[in-house]
Design a protein around this nucleic acid. Structure first.
Lengths: 192, 192
DNA sequence: CGCGAATTCTAGCATCGCTAGACAATCGAG
DNA sequence: CTCGATTGTCTAGCGATGCTAGAATTCGCG
């Protein structure tokens, strides 16, 4: 028992180290800088070790994405729980989402911009991704408006936030009116 | 005169060939398949010729993006011109935008997902990009609503469309309710 | 025709993701 | 405690990538 268990624990710890290091490196210098060589050097193992944990770079991105999804779901729930009233909850939800994207650009990219080999919007979508969507839905369902499917409403709202997040960060939208855009979006989309 | 002029004409033609070929290849097999070697082979020149026209791959992507922006602006204007009434114009605008993104995924990526080295939302933003934004604004200004800056409204609307376009194409939104999402978005955002 | 300049190509660099096969460490049986 | 076998890890290398230096070629002009 003990020997094998210890090995498995160590292996799991190393896997977490890989994911954490990849995330770190990506936030520091962007995903392009996350090469298998650099990553291997940082965890102080050789490259092939990475491939004994993950099929390839794509799967490492996927692992970071799942970690990020869980974090985002937590952040969204924590933020909305502290807000009073449907409208305030939606505003804080949107702000928290955009804030997460801005503070964790590499993680956000792993989740929604890069190919992490994860299934979306299907039965076999990993739980953390489903749950992050659910976290959005919990707050948005109460402002979807009559006769509007909450899931579809959440999809639209999410897409809008995603558009704002990505275009702003890429410098394709001016940074200055960010708050005004957020409020306009909430005012128009949410039925309070 | 004549010799030098002919050379310049030929040079310009070859530059157009490079851009067109890059676009073709990207639409056929994705931007990852657009390598300098493959591109050079298709235009029947060696790799260094590419670098006598463009600083690197990034600039080639940028050139495709500009071409795409001009096309998109034309498509948006043609579509909205044929529609009666503000709401119908907005619906057809949104549909045309999403349609363009779906039919020209590689061009859309060059414009809004990849780094083409272009400036956005600044004075030195290339004219085609500014004009594409203007094409959106022309139709959207009349449904921005009282007291809402048309530019900011256009930014929000554009971001929402962009989110829908990218998330749908990446399979992160189910393909089935696409039309419903579009109509919901227009109903809520546009003030008619 | 033949020279000088402009143009194009060959060959190569550093780096990438990924992997085969050599090597080392560890385990269980006797 | 030793020794073979299994597991784990590393070294070295493959075929690509974007990009470039310098050789080779082509071309216009006197």
């Amino acid at each position: 028992m003990s020997v094998q268990e210890r090995k498995e624990r160590e292996r799991a710890a190393r896997e977490r180290l890989i994911v954490a290091t990849a995330r770190e490196l990506a936030e520091e210098q962007g995903w392009d800088a996350v090469t298998t060589r650099r990553l291997a050097e940082r965890i102080e193992y050789s490259q092939p070790v990475l491939y004994s944990h993950f099929r390839g770079k794509r799967e490492i991105i996927g692992a970071v994405a799942l970690e990020g999804a869980a974090e985002m779901a937590g952040a969204l729930r924590a933020a909305t729980r502290a807000a009073d009233g449907p409208r305030a909850r939606v505003v804080v939800l949107a702000r928290t989402y955009l804030d997460f994207a801005e503070r964790n650009p590499a993680v956000y990219d792993a989740m929604f911009q890069l190919d992490g080999g994860l299934a979306f919007a299907q039965e076999d979508t990993p739980a953390p991704l489903k749950d992050a969507f659910t976290a959005l839905l919990e707050t948005l369902a109460e402002v979807a408006g009559d006769g509007v499917h909450p899931g579809v409403f959440t999809e639209v709202f999410w897409a809008s936030l995603h558009g704002l997040a990505t275009l702003t960060r890429a410098g394709r939208l001016p940074a200055e009116y960010a708050e005004g855009r957020l409020e306009l979006l909430v005012d128009r989309l949410a039925v309070v």
